[in-house]
Structures are given as C-alpha cells and as structure tokens.
Design a protein around this nucleic acid. Structure first.
Ligand SMILES: [Mn+2]
Ligand SMILES: [Mn+2]
Ligand SMILES: [Mn+2]
Ligand SMILES: [Mn+2]
Lengths: 222, 222
DNA sequence: AATATTTTTTAGATTTGCCTAAAAATAAAA
DNA sequence: TTTTATTTTTAGGCAAATCTAAAAAATATT
C-alpha cells in the first residue's frame, strides 16, 4: 500500500509512455528515467511481484489495474502541486515541473484532498493537462494541435507537446504563453506554415513543426 | 551539498537533542529516531566523513558548523510547512507535524523563499516555535513554562513541551488551545497546583505536572 | 579493586536501487 | 535463410541504510 519514490517514478513513467505505445519497452523506460536497461529489468521484476505491472521477459510491460490506480494518484498529486506553485507561489509555468516531481511523493491522503479544496478544485494544471479527481477519474484532454485548426479560427493555448528549451524560447519570442488567444489568419499549402495573429502583436509566420507542438483548447473556435 | 532524507533526519534529531544535552549519546539518538544503536554508529561515521558532525567513538556527537547550518535549514522548512498546513489548509495544530516531516525534505531554495513570502514571513510555527530566517537566524523562543508565572498574571498559550495524546486530551477537555489567554488565580504551595481561569469558562485546578508542559508567551504579563 | 551492568561499537547479513560487462533473445538485413 | 544488429536479460558488484548477535569499552555496584 506504500511505495518508494523510485517505484512511484517508474509507475508514472510507464503511465506516460503507455499513452502513446503499449506495451512499454525496456529501452523506452530507460530513456525516460535516465537509467540503464538492466536497472529497468530489475525493477520490472519487483513491480511484477507487487502486482503493479503486467510483465513477461522480452515482451515489455503495462500497468495492472492497481498500477493504473496508483499512477493516477501520483499524476493527481503532481498536477495539483504544479497548480499550487504557479497559482499561489507565482512560479513560471516552465519552472513548476521539477519541484512537483519531488512534492508528488509526499503521500498523505488528507493533505492532497485539502490542497485540492484550498486551490478551488482546479481541473487543469498550468500546462493544460487535466487533473484526475480523488476517485481517479481524468478528463480526456480537450486539447488539439494548432495545426488541426482551419484558417480564420481562434483558440486558447493550453499546452505544449514538446517542452524543450528551444520551444519555450520560440514562444517567449512571440509573446505566446498558456492562455494566449491565437488566431489563424492563413495556412500555406506549400510548407504547411501558418500565419498567426495574437492580440496586441503584428501577425507572424510559424512553421508546421512549431505549430504541431502547440496545443489549444478546441472549444473557442470562431 | 545535497543530502539524503535519512541524513537530514539524523541531523535534525541531533540538533533537537543537542539543545538539552551535549554531546548527544548514541542511545539517545536511537530512541529519537526509532532505530538500533548499531545503525546510529554506522551513520555517525558517514556524517563525520561528510564533516556534518564532530564524533569520536564512545564520546557521543555534536553538529559541526556546517551541520548546524544544515539543521537550521531543515527546521526552517519544517516549520514553514507546518504554518502552511495549519494556516492555509486548516489542519489542526496537532496534525501538521507528521506531514511536515515529509515536506521538509523537498529542498528547492526558490520554493522555500516563495513559500515564506506567500505566508507573509511568519515568525512562529503553529506550536509556537520560532522559524529560522533564510540566513539561519533563529529567535530565542520567548516561551516559558506556565509554572514560572506568578499568581494574578495573564499569558498567551504558545506551545507544549510534551505533545502526547494524553496531554492533548487534557487541553481539549479544558478548552485550551494555542492562542488561549490563561490567567493564574492562585498557586497552591502544598502540591504546587494552580487555579486557572480562561475566558468564558469557570476556573479549574491544574497539576504542576500538567502546567509544566504548557508554554506561554511571557510578554502578556499583567 | 573486582565484578556486574550499561553503552557503544564491530562483524556479518539483508534489501533497495543502481551499475558494467557478457550472454541470450529478438528483429532486421543481406 | 544465414548473418548482423538491436534489444533485453543475466551475472556479479557496489553503496546506502537498516538489522541481529557478539565483542569491547565505559560506568556503576558491591
Ligand atoms: Mn517524481
Ligand atoms: Mn504538468
Ligand atoms: Mn523528516
Ligand atoms: Mn512545530
């Protein structure tokens, strides 16, 4: 019923990787957790004994029902702390992740429920990712890539697919942040680049590559 | 520059015990940390290598300058989190300790400074203990035992020497909590018991033993 | 001072979580 | 279908943090 910080980090990593490829390979986990594949195999055997993962040698792994339940709890804690750090302590939305990576392991049921109430039961973290509720229910992220929108539509930036420093710099350059309303003026068929307008700034061109990394809330479409 | 959770807990325990008896004995530490004396000896050798403690076999230990600096940082984090838990998350002052025991190990300098600012730079934790500032300065606790006050004096309850469940029950019974203004009506020489009055309640008798565990702020004296 | 008791340390194990190097299994290419 | 390359596992080791049992040192008692 009580897991180590390492175990929790493994479970969360599997949860994340699982959403794009299942089963999750040993090597993918090694990259994600910045450890050696041999260490992954080691831990997967332990997690299997504890019935948190389904794992057969050479076949990769996936979370069991119990593992999924645990993962959602960790994700909940992570995202609630991120919200707290951004909203109450005024951290920048790109600084909150590393701190939440530690806070997420402080597991006191009461603590998280009260934090949730104190924050006013937020539904999304500062990156636009949904926060699971106390029973583990999680909203399907109503986010779509900016490239999927048609010309002459508006949407609110709610997240990033790739949060590399390069990407963050590009956004800073363009005055785009979480919550910014972006409007697509034109789409260029040749290289699929977009002409984008944001309030208070002149229009500018963005490459398809960059636009694919920007996630927006679909609802706002004009 | 970066210490494990165990190391931090040892340093904090030495800091606490040091305030009453120095040097700190191996057995005292074993009791405080709920481990075996052999484990203490082991860890003291490691902490000595890291120059956090002064330790010679059979002679007990004390904190080095660096160890003291570290201890004050941990105490600062612990007490700021306790304040947060009580003030913002509405935890009872006797529930905050265990949670802060975990949160204190999340060591991100920025985090603690911003938390401090968010809380309005509190000077005392919910138990009335002083919170070290960011440079490690700590106020001498202006607390005295209730027994040291003379008859016909008033004072504000600010802490407890012993926080056992029995003690907490006794206080609950008498409607005494942190912040309560207590007035000493009489002192009985025979058994050193006290007649005490608190606003809105009839006077009652308290044993010397109990009164010694109640810490008050001296300033309020009538 | 000699003996008994308590405190502390050493010796030897165990668990967790990681590593490197080598072997084995699987997948891809020739 | 061999051969080659990649992925994954095994084997063996190491450091941290704990334990038990036994030895040694320090204290207390007779
Ligand atoms: Mn983490
Ligand atoms: Mn996030
Ligand atoms: Mn602690
Ligand atoms: Mn306290």
């Amino acid at each position: 019923m009580n897991y180590s910080i390492s175990e929790e980090n493994y479970i969360k990593a599997i949860y994340r990787l699982q959403s794009t490829r299942e089963p999750v390979s040993t090597n993918a986990l090694a990259v994600e957790l910045d450890t050696k594949p041999a260490s992954i195999t080691d831990m997967l055997k332990r997690l299997k004994v504890k019935k948190l993962v389904i794992y057969y040698p050479y076949q990769g792994c996936r979370l069991s029902a119990e593992g999924t339940r645990l993962a959602l709890g960790i994700v909940r804690r992570h995202r609630l702390w991120e919200y707290f750090l951004a909203e109450k302590l005024k951290f920048n939305w790109n600084e909150v992740h590393d701190i939440a990576e530690e806070l997420e392991h402080v597991s006191n049921g009461q603590l998280i429920e009260r934090l949730d109430a104190f924050l006013g039961f937020p539904r999304f973290d500062p990156h636009g990712d949904p926060i699971p509720d106390s029973s583990g229910k999680i909203a399907t992220p109503s986010q779509v890539k900016l490239t999927t929108l048609g010309a002459h539509t508006k949407a609110k930036v709610s997240g990033l697919a790739d949060q590399s420093q390069d990407m963050l710099n590009l956004l800073q350059q363009r005055n785009i942040t979480i919550g910014t309303i972006v409007e697509i003026n034109k789409k260029f068929g040749f290289d699929h680049s977009l002409e984008i307008k944001i309030p208070g700034n002149p229009p500018f061109i963005m490459s398809e590559q960059a636009a694919q990394n920007i996630l927006v809330h679909h609802e706002l479409e004009a």
